[in-house]
Amino acid sequence: MKTLLVCKSVSHGNTRRIADTIGQVLDARVVDPSEIAPTDLTDYNLVGFGSGIYYMNFHPDLRRFIAALPPRPHGKAFHFRTSGTPEPPMLRYATTLSRRLEQKGFQVLDTFDCRGHDTWLPLRLIGGISKGHPDATDISAASAFATALRTRVTTTP
């Protein structure tokens, strides 16, 4: 199984830590969206897309990368994110990203979310929220997620 993770991690490296953990389990290469062309995904059986959450959405660079993907059958995908707070019920950015990937021709298998240290402007004044995350429990959960995902991909057509 050939796997690639397209990850945009900016502020504290939270999402990159999760990507590296998932990448180890899946034996996947981790790249920034600027390091690969949207047309270069054809050789991969599984592609993961991830970023921190910025202003209640995935990073704009990751969204632009996905928008530039040619609409055709791409295979299987998943996405992951880190954020200071859980996704608000009225703003379903994870569902929106899944739909965009499906419109581009991916079969979205699953998503992973965990807390990440967030120092967005007003929160910076108090040192941020979700300090210390992702922690050992989050890293373990990411590893378990990737293990289950690998099993699903290798046992389903």
Rank of each mutant, 00 (worst) to 15 (best):
Y54P: 04
D43C: 10
T42D: 14
Y55D: 13
I22L: 08
S51F: 03
V47F: 01
D43W: 06
Y55N: 13
T39V: 11
E35G: 09
L46Q: 00
D32C: 09
Y44R: 05
P38F: 07
I53C: 11
G50R: 00
D43F: 05
P38D: 04
L41Y: 04
D27Q: 14
D20R: 10
Q24C: 04
I36L: 13
G52A: 12
Y55G: 09
L26W: 03
A37R: 12
L26G: 01
D27G: 10
L46P: 00
A37S: 15
T21A: 12
Y55T: 13
L26K: 00
Y44S: 00
T42P: 00
N45M: 14
S51V: 08
D27A: 15
G52M: 09
N45E: 14
V47I: 13
E35N: 04
D32T: 15
F49M: 07
I53G: 02
D32W: 14
T39L: 10
A37T: 11
Y54V: 02
T39H: 07
S34M: 09
L26N: 00
T39G: 09
E35V: 05
V25I: 14
S34C: 12
P38Q: 07
P38Y: 08
F49G: 04
T39K: 11
F49R: 04
L41A: 00
Q24Y: 09
D40S: 12
G52K: 02
Y54T: 04
N57C: 02
N57F: 06
M56C: 11
Y44D: 04
V30S: 06
N45V: 07
E35S: 07
T21K: 05
Y55I: 15
D32A: 12
G48C: 05
I53L: 06
P38R: 03
T42K: 10
F49T: 02
S51I: 05
F58Q: 01
R29W: 11
F58A: 07
A28Y: 10
Y55A: 12
S34L: 13
V31R: 10
L41K: 00
L46V: 09
M56Y: 15
V25L: 06
V31Y: 09
L46W: 03
Q24S: 12
D32K: 07
T42Y: 10
Q24P: 01
G48F: 02
F58G: 03
F58P: 06
Y55L: 15
N57L: 08
S34Q: 13
M56G: 09
T42G: 08
S51T: 08
Q24L: 11
V30P: 07
M56N: 12
M56A: 15
V25R: 11
Y54R: 14
D20H: 08
G23S: 10
T39R: 12
S51A: 13
